[in-house]
């Protein structure tokens, strides 16, 4: 029996967002009374699993109301987005049988079932209500721009990067990168990357062992502008998702985080321009959503790729909660 909304309004709704990086878990709690945000609480825990502190913190809120929604992002490497909802096209990028696909009108995003199951079992002490792909976060943040502009849209997280190109609301291109843990080095660190929370799919790691193509990143340093991107061979046509392994040849070691991101964005753009799979358009604008300061990334993109860059400072957890609220309000769950 469906509970009438009038009774639901007696309860507060609590949205809890978990944002996990390689070293910590950020938690943001938004408490709503009706549509009014009445309290926000943020806490950062130096763990990537559920320790007692994290559990107690979350439990203290979810015990207040039956209407709580816990959400997080899918941070597994094996995910991506493609510009169609056709099953045959999706099958070119992933095994449809073992994937979860969400079609958003004209484009779709996918993730591996096993990764989602792992995420759910990881948080089974208090459970999860929503697991979002990062691209929906990006489209939600730039919903006012995506519908009307052709531009590069980038979501920057500490260890994650989502690069997408939208043209009038239509997805043309998307890449998802997971940056390696900057605090881990050497083979031991690589083992730990595998073991930490088991988030990274083994098969994905195997693919990334073959880093011959990444040698060409050296050439990126010598580029003066976007025009010279043509001079570089195809960087990669393997996957929509990439994890750069710095342990293999320390390719990106020594660069600051922003420059690593710049290189990845440049790489993604190069792929977009040269791969015939994608529509042949030229991107002049870039919209970047980031929770940290990205001045050097912005200037790099402007100076070296001649993009008009507009950045938005965001709180990732808050954005996840906004998406959850939108989801809850629209579906009335």
């Amino acid at each position: 029996m469906k509970i009438p909304n009038v009774f639901k309004n007696f309860y507060q709704k609590i949205y809890i967002a978990l944002s996990v990086t390689h070293t910590k878990t950020d938690v943001s709690v938004n408490i709503y009374n009706g549509d009014q945000l009445i309290e926000t609480k943020k806490e950062s825990f130096e763990t990537t699993k559920i320790n007692n502190k994290l559990y107690d913190f979350v439990s203290s809120y979810i015990s207040q109301t039956p209407y709580f929604y816990i959400s997080t992002l899918n941070i597994s490497t094996d995910q991506g987005s493609i510009s169609t909802c056709s099953n045959s096209n999706i099958a070119k990028h992933t095994d449809v049988g073992s994937s979860l696909v969400i079609c958003n009108e004209e484009w779709s995003t996918y993730a591996q079932k096993i990764d989602i199951d792992k995420l759910e079992s990881k948080y089974d002490r208090f459970g999860l209500d929503f697991i979002y792909p990062s691209i929906f976060l990006l489209t939600n943040i730039f919903s006012d721009k995506i519908e009307i502009e052709l531009a590069l849209y980038v979501l920057v997280q500490d260890d994650m990067l989502n690069v997408s190109v939208f043209k009038n609301g239509k997805l043309l291109f998307a890449e998802y990168f997971v940056l390696p843990d900057k605090n881990k080095k050497g083979p031991k660190a690589e083992e730990e990357i595998e073991s930490v929370e088991d988030l990274f799919d083994d098969s994905a790691m195997d693919d990334l062992d073959d880093l011959d193509e990444l040698d060409e990143l050296d050439e990126l340093d010598e580029l003066d502008g976007i025009d010279e991107l043509d001079a570089i061979d195809d960087f990669s046509k393997k996957s929509d998702t990439n994890e750069i392994n710095i342990d293999s040849d320390d390719l990106l070691e020594g660069f600051d985080e922003d420059y690593k991101r710049f290189l990845l964005i440049k790489n993604a753009l190069e792929k977009f321009y040269h791969d015939s799979e994608y529509e042949d358009v030229f991107v002049e604008k870039a919209y970047i959503a980031s929770s940290s300061t990205i001045d050097s990334l912005k200037s790099s993109l402007e100076d070296e790729l001649f993009l008009s860059v507009f950045s938005r400072k965001i709180d990732l957890c808050d954005e996840i909660n906004k998406l959850s609220k939108k989801e809850v309000d629209s579906s009335d769950v």
């Binding site: 969400i102 759910e120 929906f136």
Partner: peptide
């Protein structure tokens, strides 16, 4: 729909 999973059914009556 933005999520890979559906939210758990929320029961109005807590324990």
């Amino acid at each position: 729909m933005y999520s890979f999973i559906k939210p758990r059914v929320k029961k109005m009556l807590t324990t």
